[in-house]
Design a protein around this nucleic acid. Structure first.
Lengths: 184, 184
DNA sequence: TTTCACTATTTCAAACTTAAAGCTTGACGA
DNA sequence: TCGTCAAGCTTTAAGTTTGAAATAGTGAAA
């Protein structure tokens, strides 16, 4: 009985990830209501994201015998049809470079992705979809989008408008914060 | 030079996860603008979530020599101070039951968490924070909240209002969908 | 009582992930 | 030319995660 943690409806504690995990704590800045609300929102966002990811993982496994990481890599290579270097790939997907190597290795073994050694710079390796990979991906991607459309079926145009701008601002704020991070 | 995939500011492709990976595709329902917008929003949400998670992971590693999964488990056990069964824990965190076992094993080994066998039902095991675990967690959680407050520093009260309701509706919609999922 | 279905948890193999170390190549100044 | 450093990628060790199988306990029906 796989994915039993998704079957939460019959269970008292369903979706409790999204509730406030700190509400009873006696921490220093507990009396900052804005900070508190931001934390609550983050926890809720994380919960929703995990739920959607679990549903998509299940869909990919059952319907297409593949995994989320594989799909992500292929989606990136589909978006950048001319290929990406390994570094570009890992930065695009926000994963480590070693992780990118591992997933690409498996896709190469399955003939879905090809490694192309650069001639100008022999350190550089470009990865791109093979014809078989392209065909495979597009079949999956069509259903993937329908699945997302279902999962987000409650979201109206107004909802999308509301979230789009906030997420964009959040995303941009995060990337400017990175430069001032402590990383020697 | 760790976490190089976070240092995206100097790189052309920064945050490209959050852009539309399907914009050039020739899929069947491509002409459904609402479905398209929902997909784009999902991708952007996933990107933001990954960025925040990476920052928090880095913070936990550098400042407190711990990991995100460990923190998540301890946060749940802090919220439910009387303890959770393994099943409740995995459903709360939306992870598999086997995964919960692994993380709890390590926390037990470090003396941060204790397993308590139930007397009424001998299959059941309740997990809860030890005094040491409680103390450790509260020290980390205070800084964790400050970190989230910084990362979400651009979010105003109005932003929080806007996203809170949408995410709640999304979350509730997802959990009702689950009951009708194909899972034999 | 026995049997059978169900629940709770752990174990296991395979895949995924990170962070750090290692290797090769390229760029550049002495 | 040589040395040095940085860039690009892979490898490695440790940890995380899943999904399926195994183990064990519960409860109720036959």
């Amino acid at each position: 009985m796989q994915y039993e943690y998704i079957r939460t409806t019959e269970h008292m504690m369903s979706n409790d990830l999204s509730t406030d995990i700190h509400s009873r704590s006696a921490l220093g800045s507990e009396d900052d209501p804005l900070a508190m609300r931001r934390l609550k929102l983050w926890i809720r966002m994380l919960g929703v994201t995990r739920q959607v990811e679990n549903q998509l993982r299940e869909f990919l496994r059952v319907s297409h015998d593949t995994t989320l990481p594989r799909f992500d890599v292929m989606a990136a290579l589909h978006r950048w049809r001319d290929g990406l270097t390994m570094t570009e790939l890992s930065r695009t997907l926000l994963i480590s470079n070693g992780n990118a190597t591992t997933v690409v290795n498996r896709l190469v073994k399955d003939g879905l992705v090809a490694r192309i050694h650069s001639e100008e710079d022999r350190r550089r390796i470009t990865v791109r979809l093979t014809p078989k990979g392209l065909e495979t991906f597009e079949a999956v991607a069509a259903e993937h989008r329908d699945m997302v459309n279902d999962l987000f079926g409650d979201m109206t145009e107004a909802d999308l408008d509301a979230m789009r701008g906030v997420l964009r601002r959040l995303r941009d704020g995060l990337s400017t914060q990175n430069v001032s991070l402590p990383m020697e």
